[in-house]
Amino acid sequence: MALNKELLQILACPKCKGGLELLDREEGLKCAACGLVYPVREEIPVMLIDEAVPVARWEQGVRENKA
């Protein structure tokens, strides 16, 4: 099941309030301005700054932010 398109239109980055881009396979929402990816778990976007993964780490396959 795909993420609700209406939900995607109103979501904003919790850090900078900028727009988000849905990644391929709907695994995450990317904020280009902050360089963060907010993971989507069980079709629910996790919109917590502490859970966001830097884009570089996301591209290396890291899907959880473990500080």
Rank of each mutant, 00 (worst) to 15 (best):
M1L: 14
A2L: 00
A2Q: 08
L3R: 11
L3H: 13
L3I: 15
N4I: 14
K5D: 14
E6M: 04
L7H: 04
L7D: 03
L7Q: 09
L8I: 00
Q9W: 03
I10K: 10
I10T: 08
I10L: 04
L11D: 12
A12W: 03
A12C: 12
K15C: 09
C16S: 10
K17P: 02
K17I: 05
G19F: 05
L22I: 06
R25S: 00
G28H: 08
G28Y: 09
L29M: 03
K30Y: 15
K30V: 13
K30L: 10
K30R: 13
C31Q: 08
C31F: 05
A32D: 15
C34Q: 01
G35F: 14
G35A: 03
L36K: 00
Y38S: 02
V40W: 10
E42P: 12
E43L: 14
I44P: 07
P45T: 01
P45K: 08
M47G: 14
M47D: 11
M47W: 06
D50A: 08
D50N: 11
E51Y: 07
A52S: 03
P54E: 11
V55M: 09
V55C: 08
V55A: 01
V55H: 05
V55R: 01
V55D: 09
A56F: 00
R57K: 14
W58M: 05
E59P: 01
E59R: 00
Q60Y: 03
R63C: 06
E64I: 02
N65F: 00
N65W: 00
K66D: 09
A67Q: 10
